[in-house]
Amino acid sequence: MYLFVYGVISSHLHSNPFYRSFTLIEDVAWVTGCLYDTGMGFPALAPGDAIVFGKLLQLDDDQFASMIQMVKHYDLLNSPFQFHVRPIKAVSARNQYHAVAFMYDDGLELTKVESGSWQ
Rank of each mutant, 00 (worst) to 15 (best):
F81N: 06
L57Y: 04
F64R: 14
W30D: 01
L56K: 12
S79E: 11
Y104W: 13
A93S: 09
L76H: 13
R20W: 08
L57D: 01
G33D: 00
F42Y: 15
D62H: 08
D37E: 13
P17W: 05
K55Q: 13
L57C: 05
G33E: 01
V85I: 15
I51G: 00
G41A: 04
S21L: 07
E109V: 03
Y36F: 15
G39I: 09
Y6K: 09
Q119S: 10
K112A: 14
K112H: 11
S117W: 06
T111L: 10
Q119E: 08
M103L: 10
H12Q: 08
V28S: 12
D37L: 11
L45V: 06
L24H: 01
Y2R: 09
D61V: 12
D106G: 03
N16V: 07
S92R: 04
R94F: 06
S10C: 13
L35R: 12
V28N: 10
T38A: 12
M103G: 02
S21F: 03
D106V: 08
A50D: 15
H12S: 09
V52R: 08
F18H: 13
N78S: 14
L35S: 07
G33H: 03
L57P: 01
I51K: 07
P87L: 11
Q69I: 12
M67L: 15
Y19M: 13
A101D: 00
G48C: 05
A29H: 04
